[in-house]
Amino acid sequence: MSSKVERIILAGFGGQGVLFLGKVIAETGMHAGKNVSWIPSYGPEMRGGTANCSVILSENEIASPMVTVPDTVIAMNRPSVTKFNQKIKAGGMLMYNSSLIERQEFRDDIRLVEIPANEIAEELGNPKVANLVMAGAYSKFSKLITFDDLVACLPSLVKGAKKEMLDINLAAFKKGFDYVEEKKYMFGRYVYSVFKGI
């Protein structure tokens, strides 16, 4: 992943909060002093199988905010994988919600990261925070935003939220981050390519 720019497509179905997840990452990037852009799925695909948004984090000025070749795809459901898998840059990353997406024949030139986001969110007592689990997980990989940036940015993202809600959001970030750390995905670049053919 280039340290100067990170292009991300975040996709799922309506209600999974992928647009908000994109906003969380973009707003965190902005507070961390980066240039950011966020574009929602919009146009003909709006009523299709997936809702998605494109986010760019960059140390330099962002020329085109359009993401045609993402460095990372964060997929919350299976149609999102189908739709965006082939677009990921070689050497990029597919981070997917393994609660809803089974292992399958993935590309072998990208890093695969599976996060059981729904299960983690349910353990926390709120299935709606599965998106924020992904945000925490992503911060472990990002060179432009850190876990601490996410935590610092949270109050401005959920203005007026009650303390319990803030706590559960923070817990979701933490669980996502810890999951990656424990599984040490950082060191196994193509770790799941072994599942090719399953």
Binding site: K23, A26, M30, N35, V36, S37, W38, I39, P40, Y42, G43, I62, P65, M66
Partner: peptide, 10 residues
């Protein structure tokens, strides 16, 4: 246009 209207930037 639709992109500029819908997109978010700082």
């Amino acid at each position: 246009d639709g992109v500029l209207g819908q997109m978010m930037e700082p």
